[in-house]
Design a protein around this nucleic acid. Structure first.
Length: 229
DNA sequence: AACCAGGACGTGA
DNA sequence: TCACGTCATGGT
């Protein structure tokens, strides 16, 4: 890859603007001084199987849902000591639905969590393949890549709706590019480094929240002035 | 008070 | 393959 390509330039710009994002947040790391549970510049592998599982659960629950809502649900599950695949499997579905209700799509998501929990137990601490994740009902490309990148530290780029919004607005990609094409474009233009991928996706989300939400005008995006003629 | 969130699936053409 | 409807609660 060449260091002066637009994908890497924008990464450096975003990193300079917002700094390290400390994804994926963990309930274990929450405290009064760190309410979000983020851990900037800590790229270490999750310390327990339950932490890995928590990241996966968060990735599923946040499908088309605000993280703040997911955070509350994770907090509840943690408080009940249920952030564990065997315990999720044992729970009856209506109880699970009640516990996760506030993060939306509770019927679908309870089913997804059940299916994923069984899969996770069968993994026996091995790193899953992307294909096996995608074969699960309820795990699409973004969720699979989030799980691989943030829970298992596998260098695979995560593409989300914000990525499409920002980079199509900057005329760097086309609106009709599909998931795999966008993912491959980023990977072809970046160092093969899970830390870089982790930060980049998190920075994209942070940037989009500031400049690409409904009421805000995309033209105000500072990347536009800097990189689009 | 409509609109949308760190998507994925099912369906019909 | 692909565009479109559906899933659902909670915040703005």
């Amino acid at each position: 890859m060449q260091k002066d390509n637009i994908f890497y330039k924008i990464y450096k710009e975003l990193y300079q603007l917002y700094g390290p994002q400390g994804w994926w947040p963990l309930t274990d790391l929450k405290s009064s001084s760190n309410p979000g549970g983020y851990h900037p510049l800590d790229y270490s592998y999750p310390k327990t199987s339950d932490q890995i599982f928590e990241i996966c659960v968060g990735a599923i629950l946040t499908q088309n849902t605000k993280w703040s809502a997911v955070q509350k649900v994770l907090e509840n599950l943690k408080k009940e000591n249920l952030l564990n695949p065997k315990k999720i499997l044992k729970l009856n579905s209506s109880k699970l639905q009640n516990l996760i209700k506030s993060s939306g799509y509770f019927s679908q998501k309870s089913k997804k969590l059940k299916i994923f929990s069984k899969y996770f137990i069968n993994l026996k601490n091995k790193i899953p393949s992307r294909e096996s994740l995608l074969s699960l009902w309820g795990i699409g490309p973004e969720t699979a890549d989030s799980i691989l990148l943030y829970a298992f530290k596998v260098p695979t780029f995560v593409v989300d709706s914000y990525t499409k919004k920002i980079f199509s607005n900057l005329s760097i990609i086309d609106q009709n590019f599909d998931y795999e094409k966008i993912k491959n474009l980023f990977q072809a233009n970046l160092y093969y480094d899970f830390r870089l991928y982790q930060e980049y996706h998190a920075l994209i989300v942070e940037h989009a929240k500031r400049y690409y939400l409904k009421s805000k005008h995309k033209i105000l995006c500072p990347l536009y002035k800097k990189f689009v003629k």
